[in-house]
Design a protein around this nucleic acid. Structure first.
Lengths: 129, 129
DNA sequence: CGCCTTTATAACCACCGTCTGATATTGTCG
DNA sequence: CGACAATATCAGACGGTGGTTATAAAGGCG
C-alpha cells in the first residue's frame, strides 16, 4: 500500500495527527477516534495495523498496553515526492535559498525567451539535482 | 475526495509527475500512461477528470486538444499538512543542540528499560516552531 | 456539409478496502 | 489459578473506486 493511500483514509490521518504530540496507547487513540468517527474498537485496531505495517508508527509494549508513536520515514518520503512541486509555489524564494545554501557560483545566463512562444513557463530547466 | 486519496492512485501520481515538466495534451499524457500501465483511453480520461475536479490540474482548450497543467494548490495543502511532522526528521540538529544547551541532568527513575529498548526520544519538550 | 481526430461521458462489472460482531491473545492482579 | 482489562485477529458483508466497451460532443479540414 502506497504511503499516499495510507493517509487517504481520514481515520488514519487523524491517528497520525494525534500521535504527532507524542506517543499514545491504542486505547487512548481508540477512545478519541471511536468518538469522532463512530467506528468500533476493531476498526481502530485495523487502522493501527495498516499504519504499523506501512512503517508510519512504532509500537512499544507497556504491560498490556501498546504505546504507539509516529515513525517519520514514510512521511519524509511523501515530503520528498512533493519537493519537486515546491517550486510551483516557492519559485523565487526556493531557488534563491537553494543557491545560497549550496553556495552555487555556477549560474546560467539569463536567456531571453519570447513570451509569445510559451505563455506560462513553469520550469526554468536545469537546476534540478 | 481528499488530496491524499487522489494521489493514492499510481496512474494519477504518474500524470502529475508528467505534468511537472510543463503542460501536455490529454493525448500525450494518455499515450504514455496507456503504455506504462496498460489501461484504455477512457481510463486515463477518468483519472484526468479526478485530477481536474479536485483542483490538481488546470485545462486550457487548444482546438480539439485539452492542454493540462499542474495546479499546485492541493499539493501545497499536502505540504502544509506534512509541515507539522517535518520536525521529526529535521530535529536531529535542532533537538540535539537544544538538549545540549539545556544540559538536562534531572531524570525520572527509569527502572526497567534496557538500553537497546530505548529508542530516540521524540518529544524534545516544546522548542516551539 | 461530411468525415476524421481528440477527448469526455455513460453504463456496467469486478475487486479491494473497511466495517462489524465474535473470539483469541497477552498481561495484571487478587 | 481465575477474573478482568487491553488489544489484536478472523470471517463475512458491503460500498466505492477503477477498469472496460460503446458512444457522444466538439473542432479542423477538404
Amino acid at each position: 500500500m502506497h504511503a499516499f493511500d495510507v493517509l487517504g483514509e481520514p481515520v488514519r490521518r487523524r491517528i497520525i495527527e494525534l500521535l504527532a504530540d507524542g506517543e499514545m496507547s491504542a486505547g487512548e487513540v481508540g477512545a478519541i477516534v471511536q468518538r469522532e468517527f463512530g467506528i468500533s474498537q476493531p476498526g481502530v485496531s485495523q487502522h493501527l495495523r495498516v499504519l504499523r505495517e506501512n512503517g508510519f508508527t512504532t509500537v512499544r509494549p507497556q504491560g498490556t498496553r501498546r504505546l504507539y508513536a509516529v515513525d517519520p520515514a514514510p512521511l519524509q518520503e511523501l515530503d520528498h515526492w512533493l519537493e519537486r512541486y515546491r517550486s510551483f509555489w516557492n519559485q523565487r524564494l526556493d531557488a534563491l535559498s537553494t543557491e545560497i545554501a549550496r553556495g552555487r557560483s555556477r549560474r546560467r545566463p539569463d536567456s531571453g525567451e519570447s513570451p509569445s512562444d510559451r505563455r506560462t513557463r513553469r520550469r526554468s530547466g536545469g537546476t534540478g539535482g
